[in-house]
Each structure stands twice: as structure tokens, then as C-alpha cells.
Simulated assay, not measured.
Amino acid sequence: MQRLVFYFTLPWVLIAVAVGSAAAQVPVIDRANHTIAKQTAETTERILDTNKNILAAVEDTLKAVSGDRADVAGPLQDLAIGQGFSVSAMPPLDGVLTGGTLDLGAGNGEVARAATRFINSLQLVRSLSGQTGSDLPGDRSYEELIRSVASVSALTHGAQAATVLRRSAFESAGRTVGEAADIKGSIDQNTQLQVQSGLTLNEMIGVMNGAVTSLQAQNQRRLTDISNSRKALSYGD
């Protein structure tokens, strides 16, 4: 009976050994580590996406604060003296009248014609002595006074016409401010408006200088009259 038991037991042992060997070759999945690895991969992917978004935002910011915006600020550069009358284009006072013709420089032709019509309407004599090309102090003073009157007349007419044009230009520019696509465009627009405001202020200073020049001519005329009076009285002595 013992021999029979031995032969029946041996196959089961062999089968058990074979099954154990086969089970040892099957891979084992660590579910905890797999979960952590999956979470790490997802987190890394989100970090990469965030970095891409940050890079895109930095590039957009760089574009918004750098580069040329001439197409945005360029239309504003002629608000002050780009059209119409300009005091800075006028020649010096002694060059306003050349051969009896009023010359106010390039771009001021209509203003010169208006001032010439005003001077001609006064029907002034060419000189107090009646002499042509006289060097008498009275004649020279009178000629300077005519230049002053012509210049102030041109300044007044030109400034009035330019005021209308500049008001329209600044109102039109005001409607476009804020339409720039980015901050650099808005800054350039604001800078150009400041420049144009400065040029406009400079034009006003030029007009005031013309007024001061007219006072100087008036004082010069008074001095000449005083001097001539003194000379006339000295002849009687």
C-alpha cells in the first residue's frame, strides 16, 4: 500500500512545482506606484502647458511695449504746423518787405496776400520825404513801422486761420486716441500729442514776439520823432 501512495503523490508534486515556476514569471502591477506615476505625468503636462502660456504672454507683452508704431502715431505729427500758417516759417522782420512786396516765407502765401491787401487799403506813402531810397532817419523809421504793421497784420490773419485748422485737427486726433491696439501705440500717440502741443505753444510765442516787435517799432518811431524835434529846435538856436 505504501508504494501505491508514492506513485500517486509524485505527479501532484511535479504539477505544483511547474505551477509555481510559471507563476514566478508573471509581472506584478504595483497599483500605488502606478497611481503616483500617472499623477506625476499629469502634473508635468500641466506645468508644460502653463509654461507655454507664460511664454506666449511674455511674447505678447514684449510686442505691446516695443517696436515701431509709426502707423499709429504718424497721423498725429502734422496737427500743429503741418498745414496752414506757421510763424516759424516767417522771415525776420527786416526781410518781410522786399521791393515793396510782402514775403512771409514758404507756405504762407495766402496770409501774405491778405496782409498785402490790408496794407494797400491804407494807401500809405512810400516815404515821408517823398524820396525813393531815402536814408533820412524819419523815412527809415517810417519804413520799419510799415514792416511792423505788415507783420502784425500777417500774424493776426495767419493765427486766426491756423486756429481754426488746429482746432479741427486736435478734435479729430482726440477721437482717435484710445484706439491703439497696444500700450506702445497709446504711449506713442500720447507722446506725439505732447510734441504737437509744444509746437502749438511755440507758435503762440511767435505771435507774441510779433506783438512785442510792433511795440518796438512804435518806440523806435517815437524816438525818431523826438530826435527830429530836437534837431529842429537846435536849428533855431
Results as ranks from 00 to 15, higher is better:
S153T: 06
E144Q: 15
S197E: 11
L201D: 11
A154M: 04
A162E: 05
F85S: 00
I183E: 01
V149G: 00
I119S: 02
Q189A: 02
V19W: 09
G67E: 03
D94K: 12
I119R: 05
T50R: 10
A112C: 07
S151D: 05
L122V: 09
R175Q: 10
A70S: 15
A173F: 07
S234F: 14
L48N: 14
E143G: 09
Q218G: 10
R166V: 12
A73Y: 13
N190V: 15
R167C: 07
S229C: 09
G100V: 00
A232K: 09
Q131K: 15
L122W: 02
A115V: 07
V164H: 12
Q25M: 14
S153E: 07
R46I: 14
T50F: 14
Q77P: 01
A112L: 08
L215Q: 07
V19A: 11
N190M: 14
G130Y: 01
A154K: 05
S88N: 09
A159I: 00
R113T: 11
A24G: 01
R221I: 01
V87R: 10
L165K: 10
Y235A: 15
S214Q: 06
T43A: 15
A106Q: 08
T40F: 02
Q131T: 14
D49M: 07
L55E: 15
S86T: 06
R140G: 06
S151Y: 05
A16F: 08
M1N: 12
T200K: 02
A32Q: 08
L233P: 08
Q160I: 05
M1W: 11
A232E: 05
G105Y: 01
E110L: 07
R167H: 11
D94T: 07
T163P: 04
S121C: 06
N51P: 01
R69G: 05
L14H: 09
L102Y: 00
E42S: 15
G95A: 08
A70Q: 08
E110M: 10
R147D: 06
L223S: 09
S151L: 13
A37P: 03
I226P: 01
N120F: 09
S127C: 02
S66N: 15
H34W: 13
R3C: 09
L48V: 14
A64T: 04
A211E: 00
V152S: 03
T9S: 09
L62F: 13
A70F: 12
L97S: 04
G82Q: 06
Y235Q: 09
A115R: 02
G198C: 03
S141W: 09
S134R: 03
T200E: 14
D60W: 06
E45I: 08
L48A: 15
S234H: 12
P137M: 12
A161E: 13
G210R: 01
A115E: 01
R167L: 11
A56Y: 04
